[in-house]
């Protein structure tokens, strides 16, 4: 598929989309048939559990007996949960750094990949950047648990060659979140790089060539032409990376078990422990509601920002 066929979709999108024309005879029945599989799976596995979260959050519920209604108790508990804010803090810290690394370093690597080079070499670079993305997070985290070992790991060995002291990557509250950040970015940055590459390729060559003719340097060309035209891609990656990095679970689980303390604990891990460690299902559901609210809020903020600075040609 070429990017031009994709682009052309944006045009008729506006025509076919909102305030759709009057219902057409026969379409209703067809739509019912086409939508039934999705509607059933949506009702049972998305809507019912979503309603379930809301209901459960008003109950004290463990796995052994059905719950008792406790009103707003779980929400009052949220306010008094000393750990919750700390866990949100670690989650946000790790998520935002991962987001920044993927969006910024990903852009740098994608732009560098545009340099003239043999096809096979470009292919090899692309391949190596993307490969960790398709490997499971638990395998990735297990590998890095070896590499980040304080006394025997490869990372500290290499740092030692440079003359640095050994770092307690997994056992200190300063570096445990850094480890999660490094490992997650290492795994996911290839996705951002690839999306950037596609975005860069969809920018008309003539624009950049015209700028060269006008004598604009590489730096000016990038910030005046490439970056503005790339802003929808940047926005897409900011949204996707935010949502994904706030949902991290496997890396801290395998690398650090969220510790030491809660320094590398994510909100999903905290929810998981309350639900399936303590069997405190009602309270875990209340945590889930806060998490959904955070995601909705973040998405809303990003869309609000995008109106201001995203440039659509």
């Amino acid at each position: 598929m070429t990017s031009s066929t994709i682009r052309s979709g944006a045009g008729d999108h506006a025509v076919a989309d909102p305030g759709s024309p009057a219902p057409r005879r026969g379409d209703g029945l067809a739509a019912l048939a086409f939508l039934t599989p999705s509607i059933i799976t949506f009702l049972v596995f998305v809507l019912a559990p979503t309603v379930g979260v809301l209901v459960l959050s008003f109950y004290n519920w463990n796995l052994l007996s059905d719950g008792t209604f406790t009103g707003f108790d779980n929400f009052v508990r949220l306010l008094h949960d000393g750990r919750l804010l700390g866990v949100y803090g670690s989650t946000a810290y790790m998520a935002l750094v991962i987001l920044a690394v993927n969006v910024a370093l990903g852009l740098l690597l994608a732009v560098l990949l545009e340099t003239r080079m043999p096809r096979w070499l470009r292919g090899l670079f692309r391949l190596s950047f993307l490969f960790p993305f398709v490997v499971s997070a638990s395998a990735v985290a297990l590998i890095w648990r070896f590499l980040l070992n304080k006394d025997l790991g490869l990372v500290n060995y290499l740092l030692g060659l440079l003359g640095a002291d050994r770092i307690d990557w997994l056992g200190s509250s300063a570096f445990a979140p850094v480890s999660v950040i490094v490992v997650n970015s290492w795994k996911t940055i290839g996705f951002s790089i690839l999306v950037y590459i596609a975005g860069l390729q969809s920018i008309p060559k003539e624009l950049r060539e015209a700028a060269i003719v006008d004598g604009a340097g590489a730096w000016t060309r990038f910030w005046r032409i490439t970056f503005p035209l790339l802003s929808p891609t940047v926005f897409f990656l900011v949204v996707i990376n935010t949502i994904n990095s706030f949902q991290i679970f496997a890396e801290p689980r395998v690398l650090t078990q969220g510790g030491p303390g809660d320094s590398s604990r994510t909100i999903v891990e905290y929810l998981y422990d309350r639900a399936f460690g303590d069997f405190d299902l009602g309270y875990a559901s209340a945590i889930g509601i806060t998490f959904a609210m955070v995601l909705v809020l973040l998405t809303a903020i990003q869309f609000w920002f995008s109106r201001r600075w995203t440039f659509y040609s």
Binding site: A48, T50, G52, V53, L281, L295
Partner: peptide
């Protein structure tokens, strides 16, 4: 905006 991590308990 409602990922499976939110609904995992009732699920």
């Amino acid at each position: 905006m409602i990922p499976i991590q939110v609904t995992i308990v009732p699920l």
